[in-house]
Design a protein around this nucleic acid. Structure first.
Lengths: 236, 236
DNA sequence: CCTTCCATGCTAGCATACAAGTTCCTTTTG
DNA sequence: CAAAAGGAACTTGTATGCTAGCATGGAAGG
């Protein structure tokens, strides 16, 4: 998986194509199960096939698309089992981050946390789902900064690909942003005070609420998901 | 002018190139810091640049090579900080696996565990480091099977890329295989009996011994590593 | 009506030519 | 002699044409 780079830093067409297509998949503008071809995408973006092809290969590595030689390319269905595992993985790794970050935030980082929370509130107030989504991600990356670990967020991103699309489905649910911000405030204040256990508990609660929203979201667009997953038999 | 695909090799050239180059990097046949070009690799493999290029892009996403436009491609140095993080990540995720697998191994899986342990002993006896390395990986994947989680091993692999090269350096250390097998036996018996705590403890000990071997391995080839990491200040 | 077969139009995989940028050595000029 | 200008020889990035193979629809045969 490729690390997120500041927009405009990488001018290569292949990188641009990757960012564009990936955003369209994550935002569900390209719905799961729909088919694309290198030709249609390249003509739409105005690039040649080569950079588009490279972008699709990278997305295939991530599992976001399925390339079938001589057949075509399909936007992968969301795999509920993978999303469930992603939650398990996130819980463990974010608990690790919280443990290492608790009580070790310097003044600069605390300010960045507060700025981020302000940005979350602003995005929520403005109903800017995209901005809220990004601020949410940035909040969790700040925890990693506090923990002094740079690679863990990349691993979480890698693990949580299927999760991100589900999150995007749920971001329109009323009250979602308010709940999330409240949990983030809890986590931050626990980290600030050195309460590793409290922070870990907040994180677990946050992820559990995400899990509980899954089944509802599944009923909305069941054909976007890989069939055969039994939601009720899972505990989290 | 196009060479026909050799019969019997049903894999795509790009996939073949990826496997070959990756194995050479992991096995340290291509030492960290050395430079390659798309042309040299493609002529060596007998492929054109395109599939080789695709392979290098995938390796770049993994962090195993660094592609610098208009300059060349370099085998990445091993980042001690990333390797250290990989150990932290592995510890948490494998503890998760152990917790879910403990006491839930069916007869078939127990047999596969025993066969795997036998393979480890055979490889150790035959001094077949490559086979031992693979059996070691397979053992950990078996735990994931027991836990009913398929994606966690992929995440661990992604996280542990830097770790794998260090492991390859250490596999020649005398007594290494014996120690490792002993720890694996401990883990398996704990899982078999349902002792999640014991299995987690064994896993932690195993990873700690890996960590303790780091500094010694670093002194052998310090120029293979990203400089600036303070081994003594880390606790594990 | 049903089955079989094949022409056709798709697809991605691959090879290759060219474009653009970097390095370094050669040449030229002060 | 020194230094700057220029170009040769690299590199990776991109465009494009060709190849092999799958899917589909329609024709041919039962």
């Amino acid at each position: 998986m490729r690390a997120a780079v500041p927009a405009g830093q990488d001018q290569r067409r292949a990188a641009q194509a990757y960012e564009i297509i990936r955003a369209e998949i994550i935002s569900l503008a390209m719905p799961p199960g729909s088919t694309i071809t290198e030709n249609t995408v390249s003509s739409r973006l105005g690039f040649s096939r080569t950079p588009v092809r490279e972008a699709l290969i990278r997305l295939s590595d991530e599992g976001l698309v399925e390339i079938k030689p001589q057949l075509g390319t399909k936007i992968s269905l969301i795999d509920p089992a993978s999303a469930f595992e992603a939650l398990l993985i996130r819980r463990e790794l974010e608990k690790l981050l919280a443990q290492r970050a608790a009580g070790k935030l310097d003044a600069n980082l605390k300010k960045r946390f507060r700025d981020n929370l302000a940005a979350q509130r602003a995005a929520a107030k403005a109903r800017d789902n995209d901005a809220f989504f990004q601020a949410d991600d940035a909040f969790h990356r700040l925890i990693a900064v506090g923990a002094g670990l740079k690679r863990v967020p990349l691993v979480i991103d890698f693990a949580a690909v299927d999760l991100s699309r589900i999150r995007n489905m749920g971001i329109h649910v009323p009250g979602h942003t308010k709940t999330t911000i409240g949990e983030h405030v809890e986590i931050f204040s626990a980290l600030e005070k050195g309460g590793a256990k409290e922070a870990q508990h907040s994180i677990s609660r946050h992820l559990r609420s995400v899990f509980c929203s899954f089944e509802q979201l599944w009923t909305r667009n069941p054909d976007w998901f890989v069939p055969g997953f039994d939601w009720t038999s899972q505990e989290f």
